[in-house]
Design a protein around this nucleic acid. Structure first.
Lengths: 218, 218
DNA sequence: ATTACTAGTAGACGAGTAA
DNA sequence: TTTACTCGTCTACTAGTAA
């Protein structure tokens, strides 16, 4: 019953109706809500009844804006989203330890990266990475958080070879502080490289194919 | 069609299903969504069909969690809210200039306040305030933003009299930088006091009952 | 206790249309 | 052009019930 209203209120707010009166015909609102002009007209009347909006019914086009009550309703949903995406503060991905190809370790040991790790993460990584193959279900979680957060590690060129930008995320693996490193430009990463001041395999007695949970702080 | 799903996904996320599997019976989800057990069960099947969630159907209780696709759907809505509440960066309230009772000016000139204004707002206010009676429709807008933002100005005691905490918001009135000041503890303010380095009434040639728009930066 | 089917019903929607 | 009525359809819900 209520999400119908917040959906409409949100779209009205997006086109500026949170700040001041905006001219919106019922047809235009219908387009925004993916419904007919008739249904949009009805929805507007319902919003008026519930005092979520006020209207100035001009000769040619109606002008509407949210009331404080309407704004409050949106705010409530916004706070739910903030709780979901901000106050949780972490996302956990599951996967299995894999043998590194040596590749990751080679990259991570580059002076251009190491200097940034020390400065931005606050530790000097052990000269090797732990490779974790992320479960199919969890691939994509990284994608989702990539836009919002993460610590950008700039690319650089060294000895004629270019090293791309990567994004580091502070993380925890079995309560040990570490960080995961993923390439900035790529939307499909199934193996993540984990860096840590310590030798993770030895410290946590991990063997190939052991399952691990990585808690990524966002 | 789609907001039904995001509504359910949001509630699932709030009880922890964004991070890992959570045990939720269809009855419990029904309670959260304010619908019957049967409808919640159906909704879960729809979410599964659309690959917004995955399920582990145990013997006693099902366990579900969001897929990256489901998280992405929520993220999209979250970004809409961010656009509404953050990227706008301001809220405009409308009102009419009123004669001050001298009260506001007296308060604002207190050394305890003035020092904070200079430090936190970056200007020394003119020794008087412009009083604006907010339109009935816009009363409450302040309330809504009070929780999120504003610059707290601490209360203090001077010569045996106590001056309460107030909240200042940077604002613009006809493109002139100023700030509005409202008491921290009160949820109904119909007249706001505006402080500014200049004599606003004179600078803007304002007379009593003139209508003004105050753009509050948040 | 679960999940989820079927059946019946209330309500949401859009087409047609008036003002 | 607008907004918003009536009305028929069809979807989305809940109750009852099975597994």
């Amino acid at each position: 019953m209520d999400e119908k209203y917040t959906f409409a209120l949100r779209k009205i707010a997006l086109i500026g109706g949170i700040d001041d009166y905006i001219a919106v015909s019922s047809r235009e609102l219908g387009d925004a809500l993916e419904m007919s002009q008739q249904s949009a007209s009805k929805r507007i009347l319902e919003l008026l009844d519930n005092e979520y909006i006020v209207r100035d019914l001009g000769a040619r086009k109606q002008r509407i804006k949210l009331t404080p009550l309407g704004i409050e309703a949106l705010k409530k949903e916004y706070n739910e989203y903030k709780r979901i995406f901000e106050l949780t503060g972490h996302v956990t991905v599951h996967g299995a330890v894999k043998d590194g190809m040596g590749e990751g370790g080679y990259y991570i040991c580059q002076k251009g990266y190491v200097e940034q790790f020390e400065k931005k993460l606050g530790f000097k990584p052990f000269s090797g990475t732990l490779n974790v193959a992320i479960d199919k279900d969890d691939i994509g979680k990284l994608d989702v958080i990539k836009g919002t957060s993460g610590i950008p590690i700039n690319g650089f060129t060294s000895e004629g070879r270019s090293f791309g930008e990567v994004i580091a995320y502070k993380a925890k693996i079995k309560n040990l502080d570490c960080a995961i490193v993923v390439p900035a430009r790529s939307h499909y990463v199934d193996i993540i490289e984990i860096i840590c001041p310590y030798h993770l395999r030895r410290t946590l007695s991990l063997n190939t194919d052991d399952r691990v949970d990585v808690k990524i702080l966002i």
